[in-house]
Amino acid sequence: MLELRALSLHRAGRPVLNGIDLRIGAGEFVGLLGPNGAGKTTLLRAALGLLPARGHSSLAALSVRERAHAAAYMPQGREIAWPMPVEALVALGRIAHPHSAGSTDRAAIERAIDALHLDPLRHRRATELSGGEQARTLIARALAQETPLLIADEPIAGLDPAAQIEVMRLFRQLAEQGHAVLASLHDLGLAARHCTRLVMLHQGKIAADGPPEAVLTAGNLGRVFGITAHLVQGPGGLMFQPLDTLRGGAL
């Protein structure tokens, strides 16, 4: 699905990504963790070939069209420039497909609209919707692309708890259906609960990679995030509660 080998990127002489090796396969929901500035967005964009980087990325090596068939990307920030109807935005997932007005496309768009329960909103202007509804619209757009891999940059930032859980559960379902999902996340608790695997990024390098309980250890949290946390293995997975900063306040 995605293979990165020795991916490196320098900006102003400083390494932002430093020899990233990562393989993601079908059925995985990978949470990309790391403090602000760790290089999460840069890693996702470089993997997609949106930023020139040294090393190998299986996606960046593809042509623009092939890449659009291999991976769908949801950038950070949920930009929607024009007050277009939800349905028209979801249809944007099909522009790399040669028969974009055809019935296969129509079916893909309808499946995406159904999966995100957007039918009642399909004629509404997306710019007038709530943050959660906009997030659902953009996820539907990415799903309509019908790619084996979905890459999302902070997909749950700024959403209410119910919407966050809904999105995480959907991504988990996609993984269970055989997709691969790679999402950068700041909510370590939700990441611990829903992701099948966590990758912790620290100063442009992978500091830890594995199942949630192996990555979210007191040692890693202290070293990478500078925090202490309460970790309990509960019935529904790992429970995580941040407690304090290590250095008496990082600020």
Partner: peptide, 20 residues
């Protein structure tokens, strides 16, 4: 026209959905 339509969601979203 199609590329302009895709740019509604920003340059990165457009580039990753097939716009050169």
């Amino acid at each position: 026209r199609r590329a302009l339509q895709a740019l509604t969601l920003g340059e990165d979203a457009a580039a990753s959905s097939g716009v050169h």
